[in-house]
């Protein structure tokens, strides 16, 4: 799985979405509000998703189980 590429694929999806929103936003006096709100939301959501993904791309630590029953506890 080409995980490293996922943010870039996401970026393309984002760009397509923004373009669609830009042209599909309802006409009228609220067009600006529609465009800015939807585009900014998409960008903000994308940024946070990408950051979360990147943070786990090459994690330096791995989870250690808690709340094990005593018989499964092994000395570490």
């Amino acid at each position: 799985m080409a995980n490293g590429w996922a943010p870039f694929i996401g970026l393309i999806v984002l760009a397509v979405f923004c373009a669609v929103v830009w042209f599909a936003a309802p006409k009228g006096e609220n067009q600006t509000v529609w465009r800015s709100t939807l585009v900014l939301s998409a960008v903000a959501m994308y940024i946070m998703w990408a950051i979360t993904l990147l943070a786990q791309l090459h994690p330096l630590i791995s989870p250690i189980r808690a709340h094990l029953r005593p018989e499964h506890e092994t000395p570490r």
Partner: peptide, 25 residues
């Protein structure tokens, strides 16, 4: 033991991995 290892070449695609819940670290 309580440790874990990574599935090779796979990253959790959306958000934080849920396995982190209820772990020691």
């Amino acid at each position: 033991g309580p440790t874990s290892h990574r599935v090779e070449g796979y990253t959790y695609p959306f958000g934080l991995d849920w396995r982190w819940h209820d772990t020691e670290n």
